[in-house]
Design a protein around this nucleic acid. Structure first.
Lengths: 201, 201, 201, 201
DNA sequence: AATGAATGAGTATTCATTCAT
DNA sequence: GATGAATGAATACTCATTCAT
């Protein structure tokens, strides 16, 4: 079997096991059982259980990053809303396609060693920067009202994380419909963000 | 030493150790070292490491619950805003007073056995219910605009969780000032929630 | 409470617990719970768990010894048989009255520390000596046929031990009647022991 | 090293340690020291200390069972005696060849958890059944006199157990000679069992 | 490349015994 | 006499990682 294929196989199996049992409760034994490979083989491809987890995390964070596109704030208002909507939809899509990884990523820091926490913090920091930047630009072109962009960026990120978590856990009975949820959030935040005059739009 | 005092002592020491090393990385040895007690003494008060953690969690969740007061929505608008503000301040205060526990609580489900996850999920579910109820009442008295209260309640909770996390981690350089942050969030959400006519207020 | 009464109480409670859970599985906690006394009180009367067990053993061995009376071999045959029967009945009675202790005593040496084994070995050695002596006397007065008295004494002891064990465990369905069992054993052994001429008796 | 060889090695070492220190006093550490293997290796072959002990017990009980052959009661008297003698010799041989295990097996119920007791009880119950059956057959062909076969079977078993115990402990000074002992027991029991007419034989 | 037997440091938990009150 | 909180040595079992084949 090709080196990369085997590596992929291990990652895929590990992903499932980690998701179902959690990182700590998962043993190397669980992973190699799921793969149908020998103990030694595992260590031929990854130097530790930890590294597999990190590889999975990296992969997912990269995917997420690729789904967040830069907003063209010079476009008209409806276009901006459309772009935002597309961003949110793509991100939620990434979560939906990777329910196993999502849970891990949606939880910062609970004693998975310090290393994970930092990696996640960095990732979310990046997202906040992105949102922050958009808000500042929005203010500059006069569509976003004066507010503390740093704080509000965190609010926005947090609300999205929470929604994803609850969708993943199936906690929204009425709406299994992502579209409707996304519209709701978007309207909510835009209303909070926009300057008075735009509210009629 | 009195039974309750010793129990308190163990809880306090354990809290610190859990917070600094994480649940899994913490050994009973760490806890008893921090307490300056013998191994056996520990098991005299708690039947397992797990139970100590649960006790801490329970305690903190209770504290948080006690800090969220029911809103009197029949009062005037300014009074409502004041009540909301007081609630948020009290909750943030609880987090600020217990930075060690906060981190644990702010993260649902990371494979600490299923039990924890459920307990936390239940807690946050309760909070969302509370917010949801407030929104519905607000709609009935005509100050909250039409929106999916369930989804928006999750948004609000998520934004608060995220803010608390970032404050705890010291990620807001400019504002160490809680008051300002709370005002910012409150304004943001109220603007997003209120019907048009109230925005002038 | 008088010193001796308390000691008695502890012995009685310990006896029950040891019998139901076995020596190793029994903890000091079990004993003091059964007594309703404090940990410290226990050590006021016995210097260790081990000592309690030893005291119980000693007591029971003494009781058993007191139940085996010397045979008057100068009496006639029927009288000898009666005396033997009385001995066996008294011993079986002692076992029946102390089912808890019986089990312990009926089992030599299984890793209860070496000390117990020796004590028990000594006890059974004494019993064999007693039986041996009777056999020798029997041979001298011409009622016991020539045989290796040492080996046969062991046989007789072993058969009684086994019977008692099985009676204690309720393994004889048909006969709950000790009398009948004793007669059966007695007849069996006498037949094996007596010289030819006496068999008609 | 081959899987079975290693398992054998562990069993053999454990047997020695159990015999010399007793089950409870033996630690896994003792066993692995005796084997010269690592802790983990032990658990690669047996899931607990308990299981090793059980395996040893099973093995020995099987050996013993294989040594007791069914008596052909249709043969003549001398032939029957020869068969019985062979049975006893084979069983005693098994004990003699496994002095370590013998001690364990010769003692029912000493609070090693209930499981052991039951296994042993079952084993001895089987032996008694075997002896019982022989007695009944003997009665049917008219060589065994009327008696309670169940009770007497227990007597016979008990006498053999006691003899073996004492031989193992070296308590028969004069006779280290198994042959003589076996003859003595056999004569004794046959005399007690046979109908009058056969006693001349 | 693959295997899986071997390793041994690491950890939670128990329990007989002590001793200050 | 009585108490029961405190002690800490002892021990079974786990599991990530190595390495000879």
């Amino acid at each position: 079997m090709l080196r990369e294929d085997r590596k992929r196989q291990i990652l895929d199996c590990a992903k499932k096991v980690f998701a179902s049992k959690g990182y700590h409760a998962t043993g190397v034994a669980d992973i190699i059982d799921a793969c149908g490979i020998a103990r030694g083989t595992f260590y031929l491809y990854f130097e530790s259980k930890r590294r597999v987890f990190e590889a999975l995390l990296d992969e997912f964070l990269e995917l997420l990053e690729s789904r967040v596109h830069r907003i063209d704030e010079t476009a008209g208002l409806p276009a901006i809303r459309t772009q935002l909507r597309a961003n949110v939809m793509r991100v939620l899509g990434a979560f939906a396609e990777n329910p196993e990884l999502s849970q891990m990523v949606l939880n910062e820091a609970v004693g998975l060693d310090k290393g994970f926490d930092e990696k996640l913090a960095e990732f979310y920091g990046g997202l906040i920067d992105l949102i922050d930047l958009s808000l500042v630009l929005g203010q500059q072109v006069g569509i976003v009202r004066p507010l503390d962009t740093r704080v509000i960026a965190a609010c926005i990120l947090g609300s999205i994380k929470e929604i994803v978590l609850r969708v993943l856990h199936g906690r929204f009975e009425r709406l299994s419909d992502l579209d409707a949820i996304v519209d709701e959030i978007l309207s909510y935040h835009l209303r909070a963000l926009f300057v008075r005059d735009l509210l009629d739009a």
